[in-house]
Design a protein around this nucleic acid. Structure first.
Lengths: 352, 352
DNA sequence: TTGTAGGCGTTATCAA
DNA sequence: TTGATAACGCCTACAA
C-alpha cells in the first residue's frame, strides 16, 4: 500500500516571493524586481513575462523586506486620545484619507490622555519605523516627544501639554491648531451685543486646550467691557457622561450663558438641564465648541465654535508627507474656526 | 586653520542597531539579542550590561527586520467604511483597545463602502503581512476576501455583502453580528402592544444589514398580527445628511411609527420633522438602531435597538488573536442587542 | 555561557 | 539588457 498523504492538507502555502516569480519567468530575481518596478532597462518582452508570472502566482511584495532595504516604510503613525470621540474620529478620518491618497498606510494608537500610554505608542511607532507621526490632543511634553523621533517628522494637532496653554508659543516643530481664540472673541462679542452679561464656562481638566479656551473667554469678556467675573464649572472624572450632575450645579447658578469646553459636554448639559426643567435658551443660553455633526441636530440646535477637524487631520498628513518627500517640514498653521449661532443662543429679548 | 565641520550637522544619526548595542556591551550580537530577550542562558551580569548599553544608546528594535525573520508582524488590519461614524468609531475603539492590550498594533484603512477601495485595502494588508484582518460592514463578497488572506485569519463584523441579507448563513469563517432580528422582534412586539399599527421603515441602500433589518421588521409585524403593509422609505445618496428632504416625505405619509436604519438617520429625521412642525412622538414615533451615545441626549431622547459596537470590536480582535496564537479561529458569534425604549416612542394613548 | 554563520525578501551596486 | 552579490537588522541552529 502506498503511503497516503496526511489527512490535513498543508493549508498554509508558503507565500510567493520574488524569487518564485523570477523562477517562473526564467529570469533572475534582480530582473524580476526591476521588471515589476517598470525599470526602463528591462525589455518590454521581459517586463510582460515577469508581470504575467507575478499575476499568475499571485505575488504580493513583502513590506517588511522592502522597508528593511529601503529604510522607509510608507507608514504614518497617528496617536490620539480616543477613537470614539466625534472630534478625534474626524481628525483620524481626514488623516487616513489623505495618507491613503498619497500611498501611506496608517498605524493608529489611542493614548487615553495618559502619558504612559502615549509614550508606549511612540515607542511602537519608532519600532515600526513610521516615516512620520501625528499627535492629536496629546499631553506629553513636546520636548519629550522629540526625544523619540526626528523632530521634522512629527506634527502636533491641538497639542495639549499644559505648558502650551494660553498665548505662548507652540511646540518648536510642525503644529496645527484651530484659531479658537479668535472664534471666542467673536462669540463673546456676539453674546455681549445680544444682551448677555453673566457668563459661565464649563471646562474639563488641565489640558492646554481647555485652559486656553477658558482664558480666552475671560480676556474676551474684559475686552468687551463685561465686569462680572466668569463663573467656572468643571466636570468630574466621568466627563461628559455625568451630564446630570453638572446640570444640577448649573441649574443652581443660572448664568445667562454657558460656554462649554466642547459640544459633547454642551449636549450632555442640555439634556441634564432639560431634566431639571431649565429652559435652553430661555433660562440659560449655551454655546459649545468643535462643531460636531450632532450639534446641528440637537433640539434646540446647538450654537458652537466649529473647528475644521477633518481638515486638520488632512493637513497633518499633508505636512508629514511633504516633510518626508521634500525634506522639510512645512511651517505651523492655525486654521480658522467658524462661529455658528444656532438656536441655543439667540439674541436676548432685553426689553419687553 | 583646522578644517571646520560642515555647517549643517548630520542631523539624521543612523538608527542604533543591535550590533551597536553588542559592540557597546562587548559581546556578540547573538548574545545581545538573547540578553534583551531575557534568555536564561545568558548570565545575569551580561544581561545587565547589555540592557544598560541598550538603554544608553536608546536602542529600539526594528520591527521590519524582526517581522522578516519571525514571519509574523504582530500587526492587525482593520478595514471599515468610515472612521467618522459613531458606530464604526466604536468598533474601531474596541478593536484597538483589545489589540493594544494584547501587544498588537493596528493598521486602519477605510473602504468607503466601495469594492475597489476595499480590495486595495486588503492588498495593503497582505503586503504588510498583517497577522489578522477584521472587516467591518464591508461589502466585498466573503469568497473574494478569502482569496486574499488565510481564511482563519479573517473576521467579519456585520458583513454587508448583499448576498448575506436575510436569514441565510453567514460567511464560512469567523463572523460577529448583533442579534438585531431578535431586537426587532422585541421592538415590534412592544410597539404593537403599545397601540401602534401603521409602521414605516426608513432604510439606506442594498447592504445586508439594511435588507436584514427591513425584512425582520416585516416578519415581526406579521408575527404580531399586523395586516397593514410596511411603508418603505429610502434615503438618497447624501445619506443622513439630507434629513430635511426625508422628513418632508415622512411628514406627508405620517406613519404612526418610523423605524430607522440607524440612529444617525433617526436623529436627522427628527430634526427635519421638527422643522416641518411634526411632533415626535405625538404625530410620529421614532425608533433607531445602534444605540450611539447621542441617541441618549436627543430631545426627545431616541428609542433604539442598541448593538454592543465596542464589544464587537473587542471580540473581533480577540478572535483574531486567538486564531493566531492558538491556531484555530473561534466560531462565529451573535451578540445580543438591547431594546432601549426612551421618549421618542412611548406607549400610545389609544383611548382618551 | 557565549560566539559564528546563515537566511528572512528586497533592492541597489557592480559586472558582464 | 541581464545577472550575481551584498546588505538592510534580527534571530536562532549549531558549534565551542
Amino acid at each position: 500500500m502506498p503511503p497516503r498523504p496526511p489527512l490535513t492538507e498543508p493549508r498554509h502555502h508558503r507565500r510567493v516571493t520574488l524569487a518564485d516569480v523570477a523562477r517562473a519567468a526564467a529570469v533572475s530575481s534582480a530582473t524580476a524586481s526591476r521588471a515589476l518596478a517598470d525599470d526602463a532597462r528591462i525589455s518590454l518582452t521581459t517586463r510582460g513575462r515577469v508581470r504575467a508570472a507575478a499575476d499568475g502566482l499571485g505575488y504580493v511584495p513583502n513590506a517588511a523586506a522592502r522597508s528593511l532595504r529601503a529604510r522607509a516604510t510608507r507608514t504614518l503613525g497617528l496617536l490620539l486620545a480616543e477613537l470614539d470621540d466625534p472630534v478625534h474620529a474626524q481628525v483620524a478620518a481626514g488623516f487616513e484619507q489623505e495618507a491613503g491618497a498619497r500611498g501611506y498606510t496608517v498605524l493608529i494608537i489611542t493614548g487615553m490622555t495618559e502619558p504612559a500610554h502615549e509614550r508606549r505608542a511612540l515607542k511602537v511607532f519608532v519600532e515600526h519605523q513610521t516615516d512620520g507621526i501625528a499627535l492629536v490632543s496629546t499631553i506629553l511634553a513636546p520636548a519629550e516627544v522629540m526625544s523619540f523621533a526626528r523632530p521634522d517628522r512629527v506634527v502636533f494637532v491641538q497639542a495639549d501639554h499644559p505648558s502650551l496653554a494660553g498665548y505662548r508659543l507652540d511646540p518648536p516643530t510642525g503644529s496645527i491648531r484651530a484659531g479658537e481664540v479668535e472664534g471666542i472673541e467673536e462669540a463673546v462679542r456676539y453674546l455681549v451685543a445680544s444682551g448677555y452679561r453673566q457668563f459661565a464656562y464649563l471646562g474639563t481638566g488641565a489640558t492646554a486646550t481647555n485652559l486656553t479656551r477658558r482664558a480666552a473667554v475671560e480676556r474676551a469678556m474684559r475686552a468687551a467691557g463685561v465686569r462680572r467675573p466668569l463663573r467656572r464649572f468643571a466636570v468630574g472624572a466621568r466627563g461628559w457622561r455625568s451630564g446630570d450632575a453638572i446640570a444640577q450645579r448649573i441649574a443652581r447658578s443660572r448664568p445667562e450663558v454657558l460656554i462649554c469646553y466642547d459640544d459633547k459636554l454642551a449636549l450632555a448639559v442640555m439634556d441634564g438641564l432639560r431634566a431639571q426643567g431649565v429652559d435652553v435658551p430661555g433660562d440659560v443660553a449655551i454655546i459649545g465648541f468643535d462643531g460636531i455633526p450632532f450639534a446641528a441636530l440637537s433640539n434646540p440646535r446647538l450654537s458652537t465654535i466649529a473647528s475644521p477637524s477633518l481638515e486638520m487631520g488632512r493637513r497633518a498628513a499633508q505636512m508629514l508627507v511633504a516633510s518626508i518627500e521634500s525634506g522639510s517640514l512645512p511651517s505651523s498653521i492655525v486654521l480658522p474656526v467658524q462661529l455658528l449661532i444656532r438656536d441655543s443662543s439667540p439674541p436676548r429679548r432685553v426689553a419687553a
